[in-house]
Each structure stands twice: as C-alpha cells, then as structure tokens.
C-alpha cells in the first residue's frame, strides 16, 4: 500500500493534511493514495451546512462538533471560502470561530478555497471527504460558502443537509426558496434571540407545508442561538434521527450512489480539462485554434470537434 495512504489510515494528521494538499493541487501522487483508501471509507455521516452569508454557520458548526465530541464521536470539518476569481488567492477565515476545537485531537479542521468551482463547493471536496472518512472520522461537517440561490451542490455530497437562516430575512425567504429551500433536510433559524424570529419560523413552516405535502417526512424547523449553545442538543438529535430515517427507507444508499456519481464526473472533468489545457502539446494547439476563431478561419464548434476528436477517437 502507498505510504501516505497507510498513514492516513493510522489517523496521522500530517499524512491527512498532506494528502489533502496533493488532491487540491491535482498532484499525481494523490490518485494512487486515493485508490488505496477507498475501500476503508463509507462509515462517516456527512453533514452539509449551507445558508445565507452571516448566518452564523461557522459558530454553529463549532457547537455541533462539540456536541458530537461529547458523545465520543471523532469529527472532521471542511470549511470552504471563495477563491478570488481575479488573483486566484483566498482568505480563509472560518477557523476564527472554531478556535475552541483547535487543541482537540479528535477534531481535524481543513480550510479550502473554491479554486474556480461554482456551486458553493471546492473541486477537491469529494476527495477530502474520502480522506477524512478513511482516517476514522465518524462525523464530517462541510461548511459551504455563503449562498444565494444557485449554490446547492452540497446535496450531491452530504447525507444530511442543514440550511441556516436568520430572523428578519422577510421577503428574501421568498427569493431564495427556489434553490436553497428545496435542499434542506433540516432548517435552522439561527440567532433566534433576534426580533422577527417567530415570523421567519412561520414563513419557513408554510413553505415546508407545500414542499412536504406528498413526502413521508416533514422537514423540521429548529431555532438555535449558536453563540449561547442554545438548541444545539436538539439539533444534533434531529441530525441523528435523519440518518436513521435515511437508513430505514433505503434513501441512504441512493444518496451515496449519487455522491459517487458526482465524484466520478468531477474526476473525469478534471482529467479531461487538464489533458486539453495543461498538457503542453495540446495547449499550443488550443491557442492556435483560438487565434483561427478570432480570424474567422474556423468557427468555435468545428474547433471543439478538432480538440475532442483527438480524445474521443
């Protein structure tokens, strides 16, 4: 077995961290290790936490993690922040709200930039879930970037998706319902000590009434004040109930297969993109074609045929 993979299985934090870096960078050393660890994965409960910007997701994740720690579970946290499309850099600041977990050996936190991925996730997030899972984490919490309407990719990877809202959103609940409201397994109204909380709960409940009228499970709507550790116990209980529900009605297997489908597509996408745009012989060819399109010597569709023809034949 690959050495780094073996050390990941031994829960060595430096091996875990290094393998994550390899996968993020698309280092070829990563794929051998990833092949070795896959059969040791599948045990972790993957929980996605998404919702409006400034909703208190990081603080909430810190408290959820602490509650699971009390139950003796090992926790991995993936905190995703946006990469600047201009500089390619990122300021990853979610750990500021998680410092209470910094010295806990049963918690591994990794900050990631989106590195050009849309949808609220980072491209390597599937790999990082596998790595944390293989390293013996029982619970994996993923914090997406603050979302608006379109960043709903988290459901492709999470077993349980939490959508975090805050009081006083008012009409914005209406505007976000199209994407965000459909993906929730549990709704959380955080900062519930703020005015307008009951109205927000009522608005979300009425949306749930419509969404869940034909379902066998009604999406719960919970109130929390993460900063004061209020409502966290109930939330964690609800998360565990949801997992049992998924297992009982076989939806768990369907969700997992969907995740592997998304992961497979992502691996193929990355490899193809690298093949076309990074390999030196192809890069020149692509640049030549762009030049020809500009000069109207060829059209973009025929140019695409030329590039793909080389791969597909």
């Amino acid at each position: 077995m690959n050495e780094i993979a073996a050390n990941v299985l031994k829960e060595d934090p430096r091996a875990i961290a290094r393998l994550i870096t390899f996968t993020e960078n698309g280092d070829f050393e990563a794929s051998n290790a990833m092949k070795d660890i896959h059969r040791f994965t599948g045990n972790a409960h993957v929980i996605g936490v998404t919702g409006v910007m400034g909703g208190g997701k990081s603080t909430l994740i810190c408290e959820i993690a602490r509650e699971f720690r009390k139950k003796g579970k090992k926790v991995g946290i993936i905190a995703i922040d946006p990469t600047s499309p201009f500089s390619g850099g990122a300021l990853l600041g979610d750990r500021v709200r998680m410092m209470e977990l910094a010295m806990d050996k049963g918690v591994f936190i990794r900050s990631m930039g989106t590195r050009g991925m849309l949808g609220g996730l980072a491209s390597a997030v599937y790999d990082v879930v596998e790595i944390l899972d293989a390293s013996g984490k029982d619970i994996i919490l993923i914090e997406t970037v603050g979302v608006g309407q379109a960043e709903v990719d988290i459901i492709k990877i999470a077993d349980t998706t939490l959508v975090v809202l805050v009081p006083g959103l008012g009409d914005s609940v209406q505007t976000i319902k199209a994407g965000l409201m459909e993906i929730a397994d549990i709704f959380i109204i955080n900062k519930a000590d703020r005015p307008g909380v009951n109205q927000t709960v009522a608005e979300v409940e009425s949306l749930v009434d419509i969404e869940c009228s034909n379902e066998d499970r009604r999406t719960p709507v919970l109130k929390t004040i993460a900063k004061e550790v209020n409502g966290i116990k109930e939330l964690v209980q609800e998360i565990e109930t949801h997992k049992k529900y998924l297992k009982n009605c076989k939806k768990f297997d369907i969700k997992r297969k969907k995740r592997y489908e998304a992961e497979l597509v992502e691996i193929i996408r990355k490899r193809l993109m690298n093949f076309i745009f990074d390999e030196s012989k192809f890069k020149d060819k692509v640049e030549l074609l762009i030049d020809q399109i500009y000069k109207k010597e060829i059209d973009p569709y025929s140019a695409a045929d030329k590039i793909l023809g080389k791969i597909l034949k």
Binding site: S87, G88, G89, L91, R95, M99, A102, M103, R110
Partner: peptide, 26 residues
C-alpha cells in the same frame, strides 16, 4: 490573497500549540 495565495486567518490570542496544530492540519 491578492498575490494569489491561500491565507488561513485564525484571529487573536493564539498559543504556540494552537498555531502549530493549525499549521499541520492546514
């Protein structure tokens, strides 16, 4: 960040142990 790097910011009041642990994980 503007120079294209990924910057992990952890805020105030860190101990050496916290800093090294974070550096390892990240």
């Amino acid at each position: 960040r503007n120079a294209g790097m990924e910057v992990i910011y952890t805020g105030l009041h860190q101990t050496a142990e916290m800093i090294v642990e974070t550096a390892i994980q990240e």
